[in-house]
């Protein structure tokens, strides 16, 4: 395939593997880590969008080199927010997994009953 689209295809590949892990999961913690894997596919998508071939990192002492190719800093700020949000979401999910384990006694998501009533 066209080499420029490789980061996007790898992002889709990771997304599907994360989905597969969630659907065939047998332990809450394994499921939560696969949700994290799903989130990392979005990093790769953003990284692919912001990258400029032959560009350098957006750290410049002065702007005399502004006409050289520099990688996009806005997309990197978005990725940074994405990483922070991943950490917080995983922490909350793990706390909920602990509570579920206490109430149910088993860590198997396929053994949880649907809510009744």
């Amino acid at each position: 395939m066209i080499p420029g689209y490789v980061p996007f295809f790898v992002a889709i590949w990771l997304f599907l593997w994360g989905l597969y892990g969630i659907i065939t999961s047998r332990h809450f913690v394994h499921l939560i880590v696969c949700v994290g894997l799903l989130q990392t596919s979005t990093y790769l998508l953003l990284a692919g969008i912001g990258y400029r071939a032959g560009g350098v990192a957006p750290v410049m002492v002065t702007t005399t080199h502004a006409h050289e190719s520099v990688v996009d800093p806005i997309v990197q700020a978005l990725m940074l927010t994405d990483v922070v949000v991943e950490a917080t979401v995983m922490a909350l999910l793990l706390a909920m997994a602990v509570q579920l384990y206490e109430k149910l006694g088993s860590a198997d998501p396929q053994k949880t009953r649907v809510l009744r009533g």
């Binding site: 420029g4 692919g48 969008i49 912001g50 071939a53 560009g55 990688v71 996009d72 997309v75």
Partner: peptide, 9 residues
């Protein structure tokens, strides 16, 4: 999408 090396806004 535009291919990856041409990115940036």
């Amino acid at each position: 999408l535009p291919p990856s090396g041409r990115g940036g806004s």
